[in-house]
């Protein structure tokens, strides 16, 4: 599903990732861990094509990222749901519109948009906040809106960058459960986190990054 082969990324004279090789199979749930600045976010950005690698090759589903045309990038991104570290919620739009955005960009009709958004908001337990604006929500609620936006388009891959970073332990546990449920429905999930509790005793693959190098692969 996702295959990295000797992938490196440099920023000016700094190495963000060096010779990273790993694979995540379809339907798997995997964690990328490491201290701040290890390269976790860069790795995720390369997957959703926000950054280009300087060396190596990457295959996602049937797409070879080195050969992908600029015009095909949006269509690849529609297969990848992303839970951004900084949320990237639109403050001038309510919860419904923020989630609906992921469907509207696909050209889906308003009737279907309404049905699917309501359904997904029910899943993340935010139906009562449909008309609320992001700034009026708690951190956990905002995180759930982002998750709803990431999964409403039924992507085959879900990436989450520090999804429990600023949340209390109960809310974090709830979010982690939510990812497990999403994965159980067949979506490949990759979570970047520095929080060991997130993957402890999960039985999932954990890739450990340090200073841009892949220093270990273990089962959590």
């Amino acid at each position: 599903m996702i295959h990295f082969e000797n992938v490196s990324k440099f920023y000016d004279h700094q190495t963000a990732l060096r010779n990273i090789t790993f694979s995540v199979e379809k339907g798997d749930m995997a964690f990328i861990t490491g201290p701040s600045g290890a390269g976790k976010s860069t790795l995720l950005k390369i997957i959703y094509l926000s950054e280009k690698p300087d060396e190596g090759s990457i295959t996602i589903a049937d797409w070879e990222l080195g050969k992908i045309k600029e015009s095909s990038i949006p269509f690849l991104r529609r297969n990848i749901g992303v839970v951004f570290q900084d949320f990237r919620l639109l403050d001038n739009r309510n919860v419904f519109d923020n989630v609906a955005m992921a469907l509207r960009i696909r050209g889906i009709g308003e009737y279907e948009v309404k049905e699917r958004v309501m359904e997904i908001l029910k899943t993340v337990n935010l139906r009562h906040k449909t008309d609320g604006f992001p700034k009026t929500l708690s951190g956990g609620e905002q995180q759930r809106v982002v998750i709803a936006r990431a999964i409403v388009g039924e992507p085959t891959i879900l990436l989450a960058d520090e999804p429990t970073g600023n949340l209390d332990s109960d809310t974090a546990a709830g979010i982690t459960r939510m990812f497990k449920d999403i994965n159980a429905k067949g979506t490949t999930v990759i979570i970047a986190t520095h929080n060991r509790e997130s993957f402890r005793n999960t039985g999932r693959k954990v890739f450990r990054l340090d200073n841009g190098n892949l220093v270990g692969e273990e089962i959590g």
Binding site: P74, L76, R77, F84, G107
Partner: peptide
């Protein structure tokens, strides 16, 4: 600009 960046990351085409 911020909004447009988000649109792009969600998979919006140039036309959209």
């Amino acid at each position: 600009k911020e909004e447009i960046e988000t649109f792009k990351l969600l998979g919006a085409t140039k036309g959209f």
